[in-house]
Design a protein around this nucleic acid. Structure first.
Length: 940
RNA sequence: GGGCGAAUAGCUCAGCGGUUCAGAGCGCCUGCCUUACACGCAGGAAGUCGGGGGUUCGAAUCCCUCUUCGCCCACCA
């Protein structure tokens, strides 16, 4: 009787093992890709440095960690490349908010000091984020950590900009863009999100100059009327005929504007007349171009009314240098002094009131429509005519779409296909300039002397065109959209544009795991930049679009909603493995995961409980195993018991199924399959069945109660060494398979298995392969019978409320030869787990014996009779059995209907019919036994 | 306006053509501190698989439709 090799506490304490294990992985360089072998690469979607992570981000990163650990164990040179994103607007907003709390604006600090301040902020949050990723167990190669504003990374951004410039894919566009009056910057189409809103549709009368009446227009934004330069009507609309060509007097602004005909006007909407505000509406801008209308801006950048021809008092910016161009400035003032400086929504009210007073407000209707809001601050976006830098997207998108259609990469789940294709087909040019300070400065330079404008890879001091002139050179004051740097992530992180060894080895990558929200912002653009700049090689082959973590009200988890859970809190309370277990097991592929921020216990306890279960399985197994255990392939098959063969066979099934699930990104399925094996097969059955064979102290105390079992052990029915080998093998396999999901508890236990050398790590141990020679269908069937016998006995015991200490006598009447042998072979197991005093195995026929016992019939017609010494109530027994009989009759009736149905027999596949016939036969047998039983008992 | 997804036990979710497939975890009920584990063990109760129609020999599982929720896209002035 060997002394236990380990003394483990009965309860697993993750806090005691996780940090040191993580450190050990780091010290051993386990996160770095193997020096050789087929690479497998995931680049992390770099978290924004705006705030610390919450559990929502955790899901994404844990999925990546599971995949990377899986492939690492499969022998790939796995690289998970980490980093963070400078997140232009978002970060600038956060720091500006901090400044506001100090009563300052960024203009008080000035550009340089402000940027310095942001740097200080992002260093701090960036560090916290990396810490959080480590705490949740992410096995990133930290030595390759990147930041989108690093110097090296910035070179890539600049290279890309200049190259696109040279390819004439970047151009200066003069058009109506989305402007955020709060962030004071232009936005891309993707950054202006639609929000359904209920508002008003105002019908406003514009008087005809000739006094012949009015034209009534309908608008949701009366405040923009000051910028109207026409009213349009569909050319075929009869209502328009009298008016087209005439002039209107625009109320309040008091200028004359024409009525024009334009085919884009929807005759069914509103009054049929639409006010045209070319500088504040994208479609009106198009009309304005067609009709050569003036395009006055009547709003300042901060959303107050006013002509932006002066320096803006709040922003300090001279609008004409970056947005409005002189020709668009109105020739006459349109904003009356009483409206000047009013916020646009305030102005809307004021204007409506004035129109009403003047009798020009025809009516106001309730109106459902969609309003665009800034994706960072939710301010209603103001369409605004301005000059911005754009990327021509169609030439970039078209080849990627073609690649997608020929299967060069795929989206999982597949259902995103339509959305993706639609966006790619209708792609629009990308506004990449932002009027911010935090970001990559746009490398466009203008010569003040000759006006020459160019993009440059280095900072020029003189104009290349007129260097004789030697005038000052000025850089564009704006910065690039933050996505203009992140879209280069899969190769800029590897050193591009230099041809570094990393770039050679780790581009292209494989799996991109990210949230569907940024499919267009980021994923689509990465595919385009990768294809364009990396010799037509796409950056990854699979895009795994994850679900979203939401609360019980299905609201997205977010800091601002207050439903965010800090992963550090969960880890502290339940451990990292518990967190990972809940997130991985919580939802299937691409499905949302619902967690309750108000009930962490219910949410995370299952994972903690499972970790504890593993711990205790380990505690038991490790206490039993000698220092040396025979490897499973070294065990003589003839020394294996039925239970051994069964669990070994189950282990093969698990290995096959869990691996297949992981390959299909069904992480939840894989996790649950291993859970079932560990808990329901290994712990509940095998460990219990094997105990007497281990010949340790374990069963000593139970000797008086399980005398039969111990005698059997003493007889040496099967050597303990075989049991040791089976236990060690099964536990080893399940720990390996579970490692990607719950890396800490598995690593901790695995290292304690016999035969492990001090420097072996599970994280880089080989992934198990199913061993065909251990698959054993017969054992599955036979041990299944044993389990059923025990379950029936237990069930009878509970139904008759027999105290657990009472040992019972039971008889099994086995139908058919090998059944009796099965039961006889596992007699000891049945005795122990059924808490029996004695077990008689009767070769049949079934249904004959009655006795004073309780009866149960197997699916195959075998039966169990538990002697209850007259303690049983015949009435109750009859009702139990007849209940069972009627249930069976129900099934049989259904089957009979099917089998007598000519259509079924002739049309269903022959094998299905055959299977149903066999089933029917078995049930009839079972029924016959049951009926005989009822008769013998004299039930009515 | 267009597209997509979800609706299965009290809760969170699996199952997505073949009657032991109506499941799991949590919760609930009844017993158990059976020396690996009470973060546990054993035994239970619990759902006409959102409504309606259809296809099929057979539907929770496929099709149509309706309802409710969620998401994405959209020049609804």
């Amino acid at each position: 009787m060997p002394a236990p090799r380990f003394e483990l506490a009965p309860q697993y304490d993750p806090r005691a093992v996780e940090p040191s294990l993580y450190r050990r992985w780091l010290e051993r360089g386990a996160f770095a890709p193997r020096a050789s072998g087929e690479p497998y690469i995931i680049v992390i979607p770099p978290p924004n440095v705006t705030a610390v992570l919450h559990v929502g981000h955790g899901l994404n990163n844990i999925i990546q960690d599971v995949l990377i650990r899986f492939e690492r164990m499969r022998g790939r040179a796995a690289l998970w490349l980490p980093g963070t994103d400078h997140a232009g607007i978002a970060t600038q907003n956060v720091v500006e908010k901090q400044l506001a709390a100090e009563g300052k604006t960024r203009f008080d600090l000035g550009r340089e000091a402000f940027v310095e301040r942001v740097w200080a902020f992002v260093r701090e949050t960036g560090d916290t984020i990396i810490e959080q990723l480590k705490i949740i167990g992410c096995s990133c190669d930290w030595s390759r950590t990147r930041f989108t504003l690093d110097e090296a990374y910035s070179r890539a951004v600049r290279e890309v900009f200049v190259t696109l410039w040279e390819e004439q894919l970047i151009y200066r566009g003069h058009r109506v863009i989305h402007w955020c009056p709060h962030c004071l910057t232009a936005l891309s189409d993707e950054e202006a999100e639609h929000h359904d809103t209920s508002g008003n549709l105002y019908h406003i009368k514009y008087p005809l100059v000739d006094g012949s009446g009015f034209v009534t227009v309908a608008t949701t934004r009366p405040e923009t009327m000051l910028g109207d330069t026409a009213v349009a009507v569909h050319p075929d609309d009869p209502r328009g005929r009298p008016a087209v060509g005439k002039n209107l007097r625009l109320p309040i602004a008091n200028v004359e504007i024409p009525v024009i005909a334009d085919e884009t006007v929807d005759r069914a909407f509103g009054t049929g007349f639409v006010k045209v505000t070319p500088a504040h509406d994208a479609s009106d801008f198009e009309i304005g171009l067609r009709h050569r209308l003036p395009m006055p801006l009547i709003m300042r950048e901060d959303g107050t009314l006013g002509e932006p021809s002066r320096v803006d008092g709040r922003t300090g910016r001279r609008p004409e240098t970056t947005t409005a161009r002189p020709p668009d400035r109105p020739s006459a003032r349109r904003v009356p002094p009483d409206l000047e400086g009013l916020d646009r929504f305030e102005a809307r009210k004021r204007i409506v009131k004035q129109l009403e007073r003047d009798g020009l407000l025809a009516k106001v209707e309730q109106h459902q429509h969609s309003v665009r809001r800034c994706y960072r601050c939710e301010t209603v976006v103001e369409p605004r005519l301005s000059d911005q830098w754009f990327v021509k997207m169609r030439p970039l998108a078209e080849p990627v779409l073609a690649e997608y259609r020929r299967g060069a990469f795929r989206l999982v789940p597949e259902r995103w296909r339509a959305t993706f294709e639609h966006w790619m087909e209708n792609i629009r040019d990308w506004n990449i300039s932002r009027q911010l300070w935090w970001g990559h400065r746009i490398p466009v330079f203008t010569c003040k002397h000759c006006g020459h404008q160019w993009a440059d890879r280095t900072d020029p001091t003189t104009c290349p065109e007129c260097d004789g002139g030697g005038g000052p050179v000025e850089q564009d004051p704006d910065v690039l959209d933050t996505w203009f740097s992140s879209w280069l992530w899969p190769f800029a992180t590897l050193g591009w544009p230099q041809r570094t060894p990393d770039l050679e080895r780790f581009y292209p990558g494989h799996t991109m795991v990210t949230a569907p929200e940024i499919l267009f912002f980021w994923v689509a653009r990465m595919l385009m930049s990768g294809y364009h700049f990396m010799d037509r090689r796409l950056p990854f082959t699979t895009v795994y679009l994850t679900g979203t973590v939401r609360d019980t009200q299905h609201r997205k988890m977010s800091k601002s909603l207050g439903n965010g859970i800090d992963p550090r809190d969960v880890v502290r309370l339940y451990g990292t493995d518990a967190l990972r277990w809940t997130l991985i097991g919580g939802g299937s592929l691409g499905a949302d995961v619902i967690v309750d921020p108000n009930d962490l216990e219910t949410t995370f306890a299952p994972g903690r409980n499972f970790a504890n279960k593993l711990w205790n399985i380990g505690r038991f197994i490790l206490s039993q195993l000698p220092a040396e255990v025979t490897p499973i392939d070294g065990v003589d098959r003839t020394q294996l018991t039925l239970a051994d063969r069964w669990i070994l066979s189950r282990a093969q099934a698990m290995t096959r199924e869990a691996t297949a699930s992981l390959e299909q990104f069904r992480l939840d399925e894989a996790a649950k399959r291993c859970y079932e094996f560990a808990w329901n097969e290994l712990a509940d059955w095998y460990v219990e069945a094997v105990k007497p064979r281990l010949g340790t102290t374990t069963d000593a105390g139970a000797a008086p109660r399980a005398a039969g079992a111990l005698r059997a052990a003493a007889r040496g029915a099967a050597p303990a060494s075989a049991a040791h080998a089976v236990l060690a093998y099964c536990f080893d396999v399940v720990l390996r398979l579970l490692h990607p999901v719950v890396p800490f508890i598995t690593e901790e236990l695995w290292q304690k298995l016999p035969g492990r050398t001090a420097d072996e790590l599970l994280i880089v141990a080989p992934w198990p392969r199913p061993q065909g020679q251990l698959e054993d269908a017969e054992a599955d069937v036979h041990f299944g019978r044993v389990k059923t016998a025990i379950e029936l006995i237990r069930s009878i015991r509970a139904e008759y409320r027999i105290p657990p200490k009472t040992r019972l006598r039971a008889t099994i009447v086995a139908r058919g030869g090998d059944r009796a042998a099965t039961f006889a072979g596992e007699r000891d197991t049945i005795l122990r787990l059924g808490q029996l005093e004695s077990l008689t195995i009767d070769g049949g026929p079934a249904g004959a014996s009655v006795g004073g016992g309780a009866h149960a019939v197997f699916g195959d017609g075998s039966e169990v009779i538990v002697a209850l010494e007259g303690a049983i109530d015949v009435q109750q027994e009859c009702s139990r059995l007849s209940h069972e009989l009627s249930r069976l009759d129900g099934h049989l009736a259904g089957l009979a209907a099917k089998l007598t149905n000519e259509n079924f027999v002739s049309r269903a596949p022959a094998e299905v019919v055959a299977r149903e016939r066999e089933k029917e036969k078995a049930w009839r047998d079972q029924r016959a036994v049951l009926a005989g039983k009822l008769k013998a008992l004299g039930c009515s």
